[in-house]
């Protein structure tokens, strides 16, 4: 437990703020908090821009279920997730 805490401390604290919070339910729904915009919107590929990276979602019948200025929800059959730094 102690070792785990020590590992966490290796990431500088300000960097946490710029990282998106990503939550995946199976391979059917993905929630990204901290998005700054949609870069690509197609039914088989959605690219979402965040402060520190681009999240690329590949799959089938993908669509935006919810979208606000800082978060979004994508649903569909998610086949792969790629982080482009």
């Amino acid at each position: 437990m102690k070792k785990s805490n020590e590992n966490n401390r290796k990431i500088p604290l300000p960097l946490y703020n710029s990282l998106p919070i990503i939550e995946i339910i199976g391979n059917r729904e993905i929630t990204i908090e901290g998005s700054t915009g949609v870069l690509k919107y197609e039914s088989d590929n959605i690219k979402v821009n965040t402060k520190s990276m681009v999240v690329s979602i590949e799959g089938r019948n993908l669509q935006l279920k919810f979208l606000s200025s800082s978060s979004l929800v994508v649903e569909g059959v998610i086949l792969s997730l790629e982080f482009i730094m």
Partner: peptide, 16 residues
């Protein structure tokens, strides 16, 4: 998509 989300506009059934 980015414009309507940033400007707080209402929308639904957004499909590629």
């Amino acid at each position: 998509i980015n414009i309507i989300s940033n400007k707080g506009m209402l929308y639904w059934d957004i499909l590629p």
